[in-house]
């Protein structure tokens, strides 16, 4: 019952956000600002996490596959597949849900409780298409770039890991990451990244848009936004994997 109510209200909000923006030039300016806020500002955390996790994945692979029966290139291959298929698109998206989702929910939530959203409405401006749509567009555009960068950096991190492992050589790792490469995997990863980006921005915006009360409720809604978006990403991941890889 309760989740049906939220689903209905969320759908209505999304329909409102699809209306034509009130002024196109202002709208594109807002999209650019959001690309900067949501995308460029997330780059440092994405880089740091990617390089270290990439290194750890290849180290783990190297130690666990240290056997004469397994070809050396398997380490690179495993690392590359783990990173491209799951680590970069899914785990980095969950991390972005934490960073971006909480900031969107608290930004929009505090605009709600300080009546700024009503101020927009009074002026005859559609607050959904003014505030929410630019965030959704920005994230759907920029997150696939972030994830692509994450893949490259994580695979590079994997190479550093391979060098540090003493189990395989750097050359064997590079042969591994070049073997059996399918472009479709990257397409699949970026496609699901875009879906996750939409989930993060739309759900976090929804959460903030309907906040009632004061500062405590804004804090609570921003936590709730992170929890909800993370869970939804994991679910969506399961469904998309079923559909796209089988």
């Amino acid at each position: 019952m309760n989740w049906l109510f939220h689903l209905g209200r969320y759908t209505l909000l999304m329909l409102r956000s699809l209306r034509r923006p009130d002024k196109h030039r202002v709208f594109f300016g807002r999209v650019l600002t959001e690309i900067n806020n949501l995308g460029v500002n997330s780059l440092p955390i994405v880089l740091i996490i990617s390089v270290f996790v990439g290194a750890v994945v290849s180290l783990q692979a190297a130690f666990n596959m240290d056997s004469p029966w397994i070809p050396e290139y398997a380490v690179g291959l495993t690392t590359r597949q783990s990173i491209i298929l799951e680590f970069s698109p899914t785990i980095i998206s969950v991390i972005l849900a934490g960073k971006v989702g909480s900031s969107i929910a608290s930004e929009i939530g505090s605009m709600r409780i300080s009546e700024q959203i009503e101020a927009l409405e009074i002026m005859g401006i559609n607050p959904a298409s003014h505030l929410i749509t630019p965030k959704m567009i920005a994230a759907v555009i920029i997150n696939p770039f972030l994830i692509t960068i994450s893949m490259v950096v994580a695979i590079f991190g994997g190479w550093l890991g391979a060098l540090a492992s003493d189990v395989i050589t750097g050359d064997a790792y590079i042969i591994g990451i070049k073997s059996y490469f399918k472009l479709y995997d990257v397409f699949y990863a970026l496609f699901k990244t875009a879906i996750f980006a939409f989930i993060i921005t739309s759900v976090a915006s929804y959460q903030g848009f309907y906040v009632k009360g004061g500062a405590i409720e804004v804090g609570r809604c921003s936590t709730q936004a992170v929890v909800n978006t993370s869970i939804l990403i994991i679910f969506a991941n399961l469904i998309l994997t079923q559909i796209m890889l089988t």
């Binding site: 009130d22 002024k23 300080s114 009503e118």
Partner: peptide
């Protein structure tokens, strides 16, 4: 219609000038 909200409801990401200019920019 103009409205003065209880807490002012100025857009806190915009300067005073941009706040006041906002309706003009939009319309």
């Amino acid at each position: 219609i103009g409205m003065l909200f209880q807490g002012g409801a100025l857009f806190d990401s915009l300067t005073v000038e941009k706040n006041i200019m906002f309706p003009l920019t939009m319309f």
